[in-house]
Amino acid sequence: MTLQKDVEVLRNIPLFKKIEPAKLKLLAFTSEHLEFVAGEALFKQGDVGDAAYILLEGDADVMVDTPKGEMRVATLGQNDIVGEIAILCDVPRTATIIAKTRLVTLRVSKDGFFNLVTQFPTVGVEVMHELASRLHQTTQQLGDATARLRQLENGAG
């Protein structure tokens, strides 16, 4: 997998699609290719966040600790980006990511990511977009969940 291919992959990721190829090349060049075998963790919930990962090949499970043990909340696939929240707002990792298959990632370090955002404001805006839409989605889900919870409580009461 060469730098050129990395750039192709990055261009297909919505977050980066508006960035010119030379900048993507810099991002790819300053990032690290990191391979995981199935079952290996990219990072664990509660760790300090030092990097975001872009999935280039393979799938990964997103696991969250719950009182009833670890639960899978989502599965990530090619071109997904994961781990950016922890490096953006300095909170510990909110989930554990486990390679489901052999996984090839591009590891973007915290510095690299911030460099990108500060050097290229469009990336910042894209990140904002992405986060806003996720927040929207989460709020909706929360509303749904709250409504359902109330239904259940009423039914039980």
Partner: peptide, 13 residues
């Protein structure tokens, strides 16, 4: 030259 062109000269990269 292509990828480092626009970085400020004192950039750690």
């Amino acid at each position: 030259v292509e990828i480092f062109a626009e970085l400020p000269p004192d950039h750690d990269y």
